[in-house]
């Protein structure tokens, strides 16, 4: 009997909502997009880890005659972005998008997200799509969005080893045993490291400029907050090397700078 009732339900449709990110695309020339993405994510081809994305063309600078969808899609997939549909696309381009297997979504079909993924280097040139804060429609800062839901904090108890990577999605990351050179931590919120901070630490990965990085033993290969990053080719500044330190963004809007200061905890 049970089997019979299951037979009737080999497929079932239920409403569900899915969190997706929006990729604001301002250029349809695949080679230029490739350059911009490379500039943005060069060292991290798997940064997006298969996240679904809606391609938003509202900010397209000019409407081209045709779009090479195959090239754009394969480019995005190379960075493990999973495009599922388009919106705000000019009507003349609808056919092509449909043929490429993309869903045509209405402008109101989605509630606009507050954050846009953009691990964007400070030096990213103008054509780079989706810069950090300005893409937020109502200029609503990230904490406002986070306030509704308690952001989960990811706690890592063991030392993070060379080659290991941890991503605290949507929240803070706490490292209780430090991290080794060659490891990488990414958090949408802040990073708190009790012990040596030695690898690459990227806080505010979705553009939260209020994120910070704290460490009791500072000595990373790279730090980044909301895409503004810094390496330490000439060594860690004396005042913070091997000591307690915090990294935060100062300045406003388009003139962010990273500030690294010693922590006064004695």
């Amino acid at each position: 009997m049970a089997e019979a009732s299951l037979q009737g339900k080999l497929i079932e449709f239920k409403g569900a909502s899915l969190a997706v990110m929006t990729a604001h695309i301002r250029e349809t020339e695949a080679t230029r997009l490739a350059d911009a993405l490379h500039m943005m994510l060069g060292g991290m081809p798997d940064f997006f880890a298969g996240e679904p994305a809606v391609l938003d063309f509202a900010q397209l600078t000019s409407v081209p005659d045709r779009v090479d969808w195959t090239a754009i899609l394969s480019l995005l997939r190379r960075y493990q972005v999973q495009p599922i549909g388009v919106r705000n696309l000019h009507e003349s381009l609808h056919d092509g998008a449909r043929r490429a297997g993309l869903a045509l979504l209405g402008a109101e079909g989605l509630t606009a997200g507050h954050r846009v993924i953009a691990p964007q280097p400070a030096s990213a040139p103008a054509p780079a799509p989706a810069p950090v804060a300005e893409a937020a429609p109502a200029a609503a800062p990230a904490p406002a969005a986070a306030a509704n839901v308690v952001a989960p904090t990811l706690v890592v108890d063991r030392p993070l080893r060379s080659g290991q990577q941890v991503y605290a999605k949507g929240g803070d990351l706490v490292l209780l045993a430090g991290m080794s050179p060659g490891s990488e931590v990414i958090a949408d919120g802040s990073i708190h490291c009790y012990g040596p901070l030695r690898g690459r630490a990227l806080a505010g990965a979705r553009g939260d400029t209020s994120a910070r990085i704290f460490s009791t033993n500072f000595g990373p290969e790279l730090v980044s907050i909301a895409g503004v990053y810094r390496t330490f080719e000439r060594g860690i500044p004396q005042a913070v090397a091997g000591r307690g330190a915090q990294v935060k963004l100062t300045g406003s809007d388009n003139l962010h700078t990273l500030e690294i200061t010693p922590l006064q905890n004695d």
Binding site: R158, P159, L160, R161, S162, G163, Q164, S180, P181, G182
Partner: peptide, 13 residues
């Protein structure tokens, strides 16, 4: 030392 660190990570995972 770096390689040992890497192998410790693999051991953990």
């Amino acid at each position: 030392v770096r390689d040992s660190d890497r192998i410790l990570g693999i051991l953990q995972s």
